[in-house]
C-alpha cells in the first residue's frame, strides 16, 4: 500500500499517467454501465419479477402440478451457482445447436435467478396478508384474480419492497458476472482497459466506485418508494 502510494506521489510522471488513465477510463466504464450493466439489470429484474409472481402463485395454488413445477425450478436455480448457469446457457447450449447472443444469454440467466429468489420473497409477502383480506374481497363478489390484483398484491408489494430492493441492488453487482459470457458491461470494460495498461488497482477501484454510486442512488429511490407506500399505515 505504502509502496503504491509512494510510487504515485513520489513520481510526478506516474501521477500524471494515473490521472490520465482514470480520466480516459471513465468514459468507457460509464458507457459499459449505461449501455449494458443498467439495461441488463432492469430488463432481467422486470422479467424476473414476472417469473417470481407466477412462481409464487404456483407455490400457493391448490394445483399440485403447479406446486411441483415451481418447487423444482426454485430448487434448481438456488441450488446451482449463477456462474455455472451462465456458462451452461452461453457455452453449453451451442452443443445442442442453440446459440444465444451474449446479452440475451445474460438476461436469461439473471431473469431465472431473480425469478427463483424473488418468488420466495413474494410468496412470503402474499402469505403475510391476513386471510380476512381475501374474504373481504370475496364477500363483495370479487373473483380470485380480482382479489389478488386489487387487494392482495398491492399490500404484498409494500411488504416485499425492502427485500426486493435488496435483490435489485444485488443484481446490479451480479451483472459483473456477465463479463464471462462476453457482455461488454462495465466490469468487462474495466478488464479490457487493464489489459492494455496493467493498472488493475486503479481501474477496478474506479469501476467499484461507479457500482457504489449506482447502488447508492437505488437505495435513495428505495427510501422514497417505501415512504410513498407507507403513507396509509
Amino acid at each position: 500500500m505504502k509502496m503504491y502510494l509512494n510510487s504515485i506521489f513520489a513520481d510526478p510522471e506516474r501521477t500524471a499517467r494515473l490521472v490520465d488513465i482514470a480520466k480516459t477510463s471513465l468514459r468507457p466504464l460509464l458507457e459499459g454501465a449505461v449501455m449494458n450493466t443498467i439495461p441488463l439489470t432492469i430488463i432481467s429484474f422486470i422479467i424476473g419479477l414476472i417469473l417470481a409472481v407466477l412462481t409464487a402463485l404456483a407455490r400457493i395454488s391448490h394445483v399440485k402440478f403447479f406446486q411441483i413445477i415451481a418447487r423444482i425450478y426454485v430448487s434448481a436455480i438456488r441450488g446451482t451457482p449463477l456462474l455455472v448457469q451462465l456458462f451452461i446457457i452461453f457455452y453449453g447450449l451451442p452443443n445442442i445447436g442453440v446459440t444465444i447472443d451474449p446479452f440475451i444469454s445474460a438476461v436469461i440467466g439473471f431473469s431465472l435467478s431473480v425469478g427463483a429468489y424473488a418468488s420466495e420473497i413474494i410468496r412470503a409477502a402474499i402469505l403475510s396478508i391476513p386471510k380476512g383480506q381475501w374474504e373481504a374481497g370475496y364477500s363483495i363478489g370479487m373473483s380470485y384474480t380480482q382479489a389478488l390484483k386489487r387487494i392482495i398484491l398491492p399490500q404484498a408489494a409494500r411488504v416485499s419492497l425492502p427485500p426486493l430492493s435488496n435483490s435489485f441492488i444485488s443484481l446490479v453487482k451480479d451483472t459483473s458476472l456477465a463479463s464471462v459470457v462476453l457482455v461488454t458491461e462495465m466490469f468487462r470494460r474495466a478488464q479490457e482497459i487493464t489489459a492494455a495498461n496493467y493498472e488493475f488497482l486503479l481501474v477496478y477501484s474506479e469501476a467499484a466506485l461507479i457500482y457504489w454510486v449506482i447502488c447508492f442512488f437505488l437505495s435513495v429511490i428505495q427510501g422514497f418508494m417505501e415512504r410513498r407506500l407507507d403513507r396509509y399505515v
Binding site: 380476512g132 373481504a136 364477500s139 363483495i140 363478489g141 380480482q146 386489487r150 399490500q155 409494500r158 396509509y232
Partner: peptide, 30 residues
C-alpha cells in the same frame, strides 16, 4: 355471493384504500 353483504368482526377493510375507495371498490370493479 352478490345476494349477501358481509360485515366482519375485524372489519377487514382494505388498508391501502380510503374509506370512499373501500366502498367504491365492489360496484366499480365487480
Amino acid at each position: 355471493r352478490r345476494l349477501t353483504g358481509m360485515v366482519f368482526q375485524n372489519y377487514n377493510l382494505f388498508p391501502h384504500k380510503t374509506a370512499l375507495e373501500n366502498v367504491m371498490e365492489g360496484p366499480v370493479i365487480v
